[in-house]
Design a protein around this nucleic acid. Structure first.
Length: 150
DNA sequence: GCCAACGTTGGC
DNA sequence: GCCAACGTTGGC
């Protein structure tokens, strides 16, 4: 499968990733069950994701990352000082999971405006009204269509 | 900063 | 199990 993963550039930007070539980066902080379940149930090592910047001047796709681990417990849920701490999570029964990703490449920025302008992408989840999921599946057709825009 | 949309919480 | 209230997301 293919994916789209959102990040606020103030948290983790494409340039942050580009500065860590070949390194595994834990995708911590997902606190939504649907997004978590995608990581736990559907993501496979080696799959690729479009890296998307949200909550910024030009929201859109800025690069590609690759999934390089299975899902494992997100350590920040156990860290009392973390904004992601979850008092209900225990080592025996972790609630939140993450995967590792690695930087593949930067792409030209493809703004959400441009994506919205393509009728072939009309059903893309990230473009749907009210969408808030930070991890969404991308169909092969959508992936290939966007790849040609790059 | 605004606000629509959505997920979660908690009283009943 | 319903649903109102609340907090968060994220484009604009």
């Amino acid at each position: 499968m293919f994916w789209l993963m959102k990040s606020e550039p103030s948290e983790l930007s494409i340039d942050d990733l580009a500065g860590l070539p070949g390194q595994r980066i834990g995708w911590f902080g997902v606190r939504n069950y649907q997004a978590r379940n995608f990581m736990m149930q559907d993501m496979k090592i080696g799959e690729q994701a479009y890296f998307y910047h949200s909550s910024c001047a030009v929201p859109g796709i800025y690069g590609i990352v690759e999934i390089c681990s299975a899902a494992y417990p997100d350590p920040t849920q156990f860290e009392r000082a973390s904004e992601y701490f979850d008092a209900a999570a225990t080592a025996e029964k972790p609630r939140w999971f993450q995967v590792d990703v690695r930087f593949v490449r930067k792409t030209r920025p493809i703004p959400i405006d441009e994506l919205r302008g393509k009728s072939r992408l009309a059903s893309m989840l990230v473009l749907q009204r009210g969408n808030r999921l930070s991890i969404t599946p991308v169909t092969t057709a959508q992936w290939n269509f966007i790849a040609k825009l790059m």
